[in-house]
Amino acid sequence: EQLRSWGILSDAATHVIAELAANAATHGRVPGRNFQLTLNVVGDTLRVEVTDTRRECLPATQHPCAEAESGRGLLIVEALADRWGVSSDVVPRKTVWAEITVPVGA
């Protein structure tokens, strides 16, 4: 809904947000703690940040076998985002981020 209110109609952005949020919910979850999703637009760049409390679980792309039902999330992010990475925050947090070029005034 936030993207729509900014006039950003990008399937790539929607998929990247979904994948990073799903990864945080699946791999970054600690009972009693949530993850944080932050979206920022500067110029023609949308920055997606997902912060969780599992700094020891750093993301890495995988190449699962064809029969695997999961493990492709970061490959999707890598394919759709212009760049992505991870930054360590104050213990115990980490932030996984991705940047996507969106049309100015979309």
Rank of each mutant, 00 (worst) to 15 (best):
E1M: 11
E1G: 12
Q2C: 01
L3A: 09
L3I: 05
L3M: 09
R4F: 06
R4A: 14
R4D: 13
S5N: 15
W6G: 01
G7W: 10
I8G: 04
L9E: 12
L9D: 14
S10E: 07
D11H: 09
D11I: 10
A12W: 00
A13T: 04
A13I: 01
H15V: 10
H15Q: 12
I17Y: 02
A18L: 06
A18S: 11
E19A: 10
E19Q: 14
L20E: 00
L20A: 01
A21G: 09
A21M: 13
A21W: 03
A22F: 08
A22V: 04
N23H: 09
N23M: 05
A25P: 00
A25T: 04
A25D: 11
T26A: 14
H27M: 10
H27C: 06
H27P: 00
R29N: 12
R29W: 09
V30K: 11
V30S: 11
P31Y: 07
P31K: 10
N34L: 15
F35M: 05
F35G: 01
Q36K: 14
Q36R: 14
L37D: 03
T38Q: 15
T38A: 15
L39N: 05
N40E: 14
N40D: 12
N40S: 13
V41Y: 04
V41D: 03
V41P: 02
V42F: 06
G43V: 01
G43M: 01
D44K: 07
D44G: 10
D44F: 02
T45M: 08
L46C: 06
L46Y: 04
L46D: 02
L46W: 04
R47I: 04
R47E: 11
R47K: 15
E49V: 01
E49R: 08
V50G: 03
T51G: 03
T51R: 09
D52T: 02
R54N: 03
R54V: 05
R55W: 13
R55G: 05
R55S: 09
C57K: 11
C57W: 06
C57V: 15
L58Q: 14
A60Q: 12
T61A: 08
H63L: 08
H63Y: 13
P64Q: 07
P64V: 01
P64N: 09
A66S: 12
A66C: 11
E67R: 10
E67S: 11
A68M: 07
A68Q: 10
E69Q: 13
E69L: 12
S70V: 05
R72Y: 15
G73V: 00
G73F: 00
G73N: 01
L75E: 14
L75H: 08
L75N: 15
V77L: 03
E78R: 08
E78S: 09
A79K: 14
A79Y: 09
A79Q: 13
A79W: 07
L80V: 01
L80I: 02
A81G: 02
D82T: 12
D82P: 00
D82E: 13
W84C: 03
W84L: 04
G85P: 03
G85T: 06
G85W: 05
S88H: 09
S88Y: 06
V90M: 10
V91M: 09
V91Y: 11
V91F: 08
R93L: 05
R93Q: 15
K94N: 04
T95C: 07
W97Y: 13
W97E: 06
A98D: 01
A98C: 06
E99F: 04
E99M: 08
T101D: 06
P103Y: 07
V104P: 10
G105D: 10
G105L: 10
G105I: 06
G105A: 12
A106N: 11
